[in-house]
């Protein structure tokens, strides 16, 4: 089944920067996909379109067979609860601790307090941050903030996980840990799309690779590597 489908998607920003050009792409349910390409090639734009952080300029995007381009505003929260997203700039709530930031993703879907108190520490342990639960984002390093962001993205086990450079600020050892976690949640059927610059990770995983350049898909390989 197609989990995500782009049909003739174009994205032009207000200042007339063309970020994505005629994107046609299908991603199967349970697939693990690397989105690679140089800086400014449109990877983050691709991800932002999926959660409707920004609107498409033309074309349509289907998620679970549903055209999300004409989704009503009131349905957007529902969409976002089914897509875990690790943002390139983390987007943590500055006034909440690591624990509270992760718990927030469960609170918005109405999980009761006792479940939150069990699940959040588990996930924080998974990303190796259980001893920093009570730290605020400004008290954490870039890599630590990134891991909080990752924990928040999959704490509620969404069917789709988007990760925009989730290993960008993390040392190789921790990156390996993160990749293990992503593989594990991919194994239970979660569709994972990960934008990355990390050549060694892409090469070691041997998953589908889609390469962007100036907003266009220039390569789509089944068991690909980062590129030449």
């Amino acid at each position: 089944m197609n989990m995500i489908e782009f049909r003739k998607v174009n994205k032009v920003y207000e200042n007339e920067t063309v970020a994505l050009r005629n994107i046609n792409l299908s991603i199967e349910k349970g697939e693990f996909l690397f989105l690679v390409g140089p800086s400014g090639s449109g990877k983050s734009t691709f991800i932002k379109l999926l959660i409707k952080e920004i609107p498409v300029t033309s074309g349509s995007i289907f998620i679970a067979k549903r055209n999300v381009c004409n989704l009503k505003n009131s349905r957007i929260p529902q969409l976002r609860r089914n897509i875990g997203c690790v943002f390139q700039d983390f987007k943590l709530l500055p006034n909440k601790t690591a624990f509270e930031n992760v718990a927030f993703a469960l609170e918005v879907i109405g999980k009761p307090g006792y479940e939150i108190r069990v699940q959040v520490p588990q996930v924080l342990k998974l990303v190796g941050l259980h001893n920093k639960s009570n730290s605020y984002p400004h008290q954490l390093s870039g890599g630590e903030q990134q891991r909080v962001s990752i924990a928040r993205a999959f704490v509620n086990r969404p069917p789709i996980l988007l990760a925009d450079e989730p290993t960008g600020n993390i040392d190789p050892a921790t990156s390996d840990g993160i990749m293990k976690i992503l593989s594990r949640i991919n194994l239970v059927g979660t569709t994972v799309v990960m934008a990355t610059h990390d050549r060694s990770i892409v090469n070691s995983m041997r998953r589908r690779v889609v390469e962007l350049e100036e907003g266009e898909i220039i390569r789509d390989q089944k068991r690909g590597v980062y590129g030449d």
């Binding site: 957007i76 929260p77 943002f87 918005v108």
Partner: peptide, 11 residues
Amino acid sequence: VMKLVGASNWF
């Protein structure tokens, strides 16, 4: 940010 992680308007 709240909205990006799926909080409804009322929430």
